[in-house]
């Protein structure tokens, strides 16, 4: 599976790209000096540059250690079993996010909790549905009624008259 070396290197490259994107974005606003002091791009430019350089440093150290054979970089960072556990948690979570922005957060909460309990937790339909609908009802009462904060709603809530 994934060794520490690849995890470290990939992350360092990703943060370096982030830093460079910020640098590029900052250049549009000028990084020099004008009548009102430093231009708006100056501060982000240097922070972006700092991120890119520090990432490069991490990458260099990681590769250096790899060749020196030190630092435990050959250790498995994520094995098959761990990957399965994380994926089993992350994929429904991703589904929840997708449902939230399309069907609204209440419907997404109910579907997500039912899925997690019924199909992943091995509970019966009744406890799963009761917990899911109970949780959604609690969020509704606490947020919309008590704190007067509206959550993201989809096409289904108006049908229920909420």
């Amino acid at each position: 599976m994934i060794t520490r070396f690849w995890a470290e290197s990939a992350t360092a490259v990703a943060t370096m790209v982030f830093g460079l994107v910020i640098v590029k974005g900052a250049l549009e606003f000028g990084i020099g000096w004008d009548s009102s002091g430093p231009q708006p791009g100056a501060f982000p430019f240097y922070t972006g540059l700092l991120v890119a350089l520090a990432s490069l440093g991490t990458l260099a150290i990681t590769i250096g250690k790899r060749f020196a054979g030190s630092g435990g970089l050959q250790e498995i960072s994520l094995d098959g079993e761990q990957f399965r556990r994380v994926a089993a948690f992350f994929l429904p979570l991703l589904g929840f996010v997708l449902l939230s922005v399309t069907l609204g957060m209440y419907v997404a909460t109910i579907l997500y909790l039912v899925f997690a309990m019924r199909f992943q937790g091995g509970y019966g339909w009744l406890p799963s549905l009761a917990t899911a609908i109970g949780a959604a009802a609690f969020f509704y009462l606490a947020l919309e009624k008590f704190f007067q904060i509206g959550l993201l709603k989809g096409p289904l809530e108006p049908l229920l008259g909420l």
């Binding site: 948690f89 929840f96 996010v97 997500y112 993201l152």
Partner: peptide
């Protein structure tokens, strides 16, 4: 299996309530 997904839902609902932005 019950508490984990509920915490997930609370986290995302909390994220939405900050500025009501999807």
């Amino acid at each position: 299996a019950i508490i984990g997904p509920i915490i997930v839902a609370i986290c995302f609902i909390g994220a939405f309530t900050v500025a009501a932005k999807p």
